[in-house]
Design a protein around this nucleic acid. Structure first.
Length: 423
RNA sequence: AGAGGAGUGGCGGAGUGGUCGAACGCGGCGGUCUUGAAAACCGUUGUACCGCAAGGUACCGGGGGUUCGAAUCCCUCCUCCUCUGCCA
């Protein structure tokens, strides 16, 4: 969430930033926050000085009791009774103000980086690069949902039988290809200096709030009611939350983690005729890279992460484009996001396979993730993450783009992982 | 899952109603000494909020309660350990 002190210091900048996200009452919104913070301070001052008085009296009573001056002690107690009542009210009011304030802040998205274009939808995203060659498919080429049936490598009906729509069963070479991609992505990340972690795939409420899925995306996560746990929508949640309530030493920076997990998304309301095959699932595999950086290094790190994703796409021979998301299409917590899309040649569509974001201090502020600088001052860190990469759409593109009359060619870098070169 | 025990500062570990943000040890940082280092000695060493500052307030697993006053007593939740049971 945003920091009130920064809002105070640079209000105009914040208003302008939020306007890019099409929040038109930004001024009013921020004023409310500022006002709440003021009354928070006032109330706390009052409470603190009352508490100080109560503490003093309590000490006096203690001293009097020791000397056996019971009557005098009893007399002073009338004042503490008053204070007690008063302080209870003040504390309640402070709590109320505080929760109203956090509630407000929870519902204000991050302020976009200055380079983020204005816009209202995906149509306004800025294409900043296009690379790779779009393959010419043979006359009988078909989309991946036909290919997976033809070669019996992914079975949606079986998934429906045991779970529901959007939970495919990978079989034979399909399963092996999936595993190959996971291993390849993990190995490449480790080569690039990321430390591998294997986190739980359920998280508690505090973690959901830490990275901003709660309360913003409450309805998009599967909820395990009996335990009050959420199935993770992305490894970002557990991996970033490893550093919740942590003060790092400067020498521990930068943090670079990579993790492979299944991801679960309810995708409530986002199904339609255009969603077929692997394009959108309730459960999918993803390798995620996460970095924690000093503020002054975070944009350099963002570029580094983008370069890593590009390297993966190039090595798999997939045509791709990079979009800089506009204010209207960016995630709630992000300051700057690049989306990577691959071209899936049979369905003739661009599919998002990676999203790389810098959250600046927005998550860190919720997470209380800081480091100590050389003056022993606590500084909020910047968090970043990116998919490297999401599997199903990569799979779709590989299958479609590499098909010929006799089968499907597997990209060369994967051969040592699959153990076969064709499907 | 049942029975018992325990959760204190970076770590170890005292403290069972007042003078405790918390003894002591280790570690860290600064200094003395040394050609340098080690040892020894001296000093220092949590986080957040409010305040120009002096200073104040809160925090001893989380939440609630008793009391003039709670690390200390009560309730509840969480976590860990031991034994028993079960299980991949």
């Amino acid at each position: 969430m945003l920091q009130v002190n920064n809002i105070l210091a640079e209000k105009e900048k914040y208003v302008a930033g939020l306007k890019k996200r099409n929040i038109n009452n930004a001024t009013a919104l921020l004023n409310e926050v500022i006002q709440l913070d003021e009354s928070r301070k006032k109330t706390q001052q009052e409470l603190d000085s009352n508490l100080a008085e109560a503490n003093t009296i309590a000490k006096q009573i203690g001293a009097l009791m020791k000397q056996g001056r019971k009557e005098e002690a009893e007399q002073i107690k009338t004042r503490t009774a008053e204070l007690k009542q008063l302080n209870k009210e003040l504390a309640d009011r402070l709590n109320e103000i505080q929760s109203e304030l956090t509630h407000k802040l929870y519902n204000i998205p991050n302020v976009p980086h200055e380079s983020v274009p204005a816009g209202t939808s995906a149509d306004d995203n800025e294409e900043i690069k296009k690379a790779g060659e779009i393959p010419q498919l043979h006359g009988q080429a078909v989309p991946h949902w036909d290919l997976i049936k033809k070669y019996d490598i992914i079975d949606f009906d079986l998934g429906v039988k045991i779970a529901g729509a959007g939970f495919p069963v990978y079989k034979g070479k399909g399963a092996r290809l999936q595993r190959a991609l996971v291993n390849y992505f993990l190995d490449e990340a480790v080569k690039a200096g990321y430390a591998e972690v294997q986190p739980p795939i359920v998280v508690n409420e505090a973690s959901g709030y830490g990275t901003g899925q709660l309360p913003d995306k409450e309805g998009q996560m599967y909820h395990v009611q009996a335990e009050n746990l959420y199935l993770i929508p992305t490894a970002e949640v557990p991996i970033t939350n490893l550093y919740r309530d942590v003060i790092l030493n400067e020498s521990e920076l930068p943090v670079k983690n990579v993790g492979f997990t299944p991801c679960f998304r309810r995708e409530a309301g986002s199904w339609g005729a255009h969603v077929r095959g692997l394009n959108r699932l309730h459960q999918f595999d993803k390798v995620e890279i996460v970095q924690i950086r000093k503020p002054e290094e975070s944009y350099q790190a963002l570029n580094e992460m983008c370069a890593h994703v590009e390297h993966l796409l190039n090595s798999l021979n997939l045509p791709y484009r990079i979009l800089k998301l506009c204010g209207g299409d960016m995630g709630f917590t992000s300051a700057l996001t690049y989306d990577f899309e691959v071209y899936s040649a049979a369905q003739e569509k661009w599919l998002e396979v990676s999203s790389v974001s810098n959250f600046e201090t927005y998550q860190a502020n919720r997470l209380k993730l800081r480091y100590k600088d050389e003056n022993k001052k606590s500084i909020l860190l910047h968090t970043l993450n990116g998919s490297a990469m999401a599997l199903p759409r990569i799979m779709a593109a590989i299958l479609e783009n590499n098909q010929d009359e006799n089968g499907i060619a597997i990209p060369e870098v994967l051969h040592m992982y699959t153990g076969f070169e064709r499907i």
